[in-house]
């Protein structure tokens, strides 16, 4: 039998507690135990970023986090970030520019991009590209994604200076 532990953490804003096998990585845990489908894997060795989650306010590779390492953390997936509306503007920009084709990389891209939407310092396209450089997309050619991130950043900055 797989060793199990009692695991308690916050998932998309709700406290959860469950007995889970320790050998699951975070994506398998969220999919198999918590019934989510937004987090996905494309490599399980840290390269592709499809598994990207927000853990304690920071980006993390879901495939490189073991279930027990989530103890006491605050975990957000694309489902939660969609529900709060936090990245609705970014999602709209992605949609308007067709910055997703097959959609496999999309949640990871959105969560990764979300981290720099409010970064105060100006960021040129190359800096955006470098921030996204750990997220693999085979379909889009990246440009529409960079465009969408750039547009959202600018809109938010304009909103801030208008406020």
């Amino acid at each position: 039998m797989d060793e199990e532990i009692e695991l308690a953490f916050t998932l998309n804003g709700k406290a959860v507690r469950r007995r889970v096998p320790v050998r699951l990585h975070a994506v398998d845990l969220l999919r198999e135990v918590f019934g989510l489908s937004g987090p996905r894997v494309a490599c399980e060795h840290g390269i592709c970023g499809a598994c990207t989650l927000r853990v304690d306010g920071q980006l993390a590779r879901g495939c490189l986090l073991l279930a027990p390492q989530l103890e006491g953390t605050d975990v957000w997936t694309i489902e939660g970030l969609t529900a709060t509306g936090e990245i609705a503007d970014l999602q709209n920009e992605f949609h308007a520019r067709n910055a997703m084709q097959c959609g496999w990389c999309t949640a990871g891209m959105l969560i990764t991009a979300a981290e720099i939407l409010d970064a105060p310092a100006p960021m040129d396209r190359q800096a955006i590209r470098e921030h996204l450089s750990g997220n693999y997309c085979r379909c889009t050619g990246y440009q529409a994604i960079v465009d969408a991130v750039e547009a959202t950043r600018q809109a938010r900055a304009a909103g801030r200076s208008a406020a």
Binding site: L36, E79, T106
Partner: peptide, 19 residues
């Protein structure tokens, strides 16, 4: 025209075989 079926992919609601 943007893809109407793109929305679900943006919200983590795509349905692939593994789902």
């Amino acid at each position: 025209v943007p893809r109407p079926n793109g929305r679900r992919l943006l919200e983590g609601r795509g349905r692939y075989v593994d789902d």
